[in-house]
Design a binder for these strands. Structure first.
Lengths: 186, 186
DNA sequence: CATTCAAATGAGATCGAGTCTCATTATCAG
DNA sequence: CTGATAATGAGACTCGATCTCATTTGAATG
């Protein structure tokens, strides 16, 4: 089986200020259009939350988001973050990624290639991966069953390269009950 | 792409009383061995919960399990069901399947071929499917990243064949926020 | 720019799945 | 049978997520 191509998934492009600014305003406009279509408004808070997700160099959970945002706006409330994340999911700009401890993280989805996730149960790192062939066979299975797919969740839990090298690192040792089959059990 | 083979996944075998009895006692013994290894005991409740999962013709949630078990043992407590399900997951006899509404369902895993799930957001039906090729490419991706997989979750949310035929059937209209990409977004 | 009004906000109440506590009961090895 | 120890059921508790509501804000309008 020949190896599939590796693609840089996390948006390291748009890290230079000029590019980031352009990227941000493009995405913001998409958000505003979605909001406008439902008679909703673009507020300072919504803008900041989206900016924060776009500027992040990794997947963020609600609490991480809350702490970061709190620094520049101490009055921001958790409820607003939950509400905004939900809106961003609804318009397809943001996607949820499960973790081993139950607290979901979020990633920017707009403008980025489709991918799935491998999640380290030791360091909580989320590794993005692509496999077009895997997707093809998945879509084949869906078609065979006469199913119409709206979204999917494909998350592989285990230990990442780094945690295998130097065993037991930091946070999140309390992880979801899971049995150790061979490989993924399939 | 030639079609992959279809396999009967839900254990319709073992529906005849004699076969079921043999199957049950084999699985019960596996459970007891796991328990014994940890100094734990096989109780009437644990036995009943496992039997219930084995006899089920579909995936059950905690509440469904609770209601069924309550009929033959009105004193059974929810906590016991949670605790037992956790034990069964730990020894690999049972697996959790997510649903669109947050309340997980459970399935017997022992003795059954590996498969993934398509979940109908209208009728909550869970369709089991297999794609060995998909698994192969998945394992390839895992290897490429130097990751060691312990378990995975591959769930496709959408509408099943039946719900597409006669739109909007029963229960569970309140489903998880999810955007309608083309296909599965990938 | 001021006005207007629906939408959005933050604080805190509430919800609910899942977990924990603890007094009582059951298992099972000897 | 007995004793040590695990398991149970009831209900308190946890904590992420949602809801409520009084107040504030966005943006369309004149």
């Amino acid at each position: 089986m020949k190896p599939e191509p590796e693609v840089i998934l996390f948006p390291k492009h748009a890290r230079r200020p000029q590019q980031f600014k352009a990227w941000l305003s493009a995405i913001l406009q998409m958000f505003q259009e979605h909001l406008g279509r439902q008679g909703l408004k673009l507020t300072r808070q919504r803008e900041e939350i989206l900016r924060c997700l776009m500027a992040a160099e990794r997947h963020l959970g609600i609490d991480e988001l809350y702490l970061v945002l709190k620094k520049q706006d101490p009055s921001i409330g958790r409820a607003t973050i939950f509400r905004t994340i939900k809106l961003l999911q609804e318009c397809g700009l943001v996607a949820e990624v499960g973790t081993a401890n139950g607290r979901s993280k979020f990633e920017l989805k707009a403008d980025r290639p489709h991918h799935d996730h491998m999640i380290c149960i030791e360091c909580s790192r989320i590794i993005e991966f692509q496999s077009p062939m895997m997707e093809r066979f998945q879509d084949g299975a869906i078609r065979r069953h006469g199913f119409v797919a709206l979204w999917h969740r494909h998350e592989i839990f285990g230990r990442c390269r780094d945690c295998l090298k130097h065993p037991s690192s930091e946070e999140d040792t309390k992880f979801r009950v899971g049995q150790a089959d061979q490989a993924t059990g399939g």
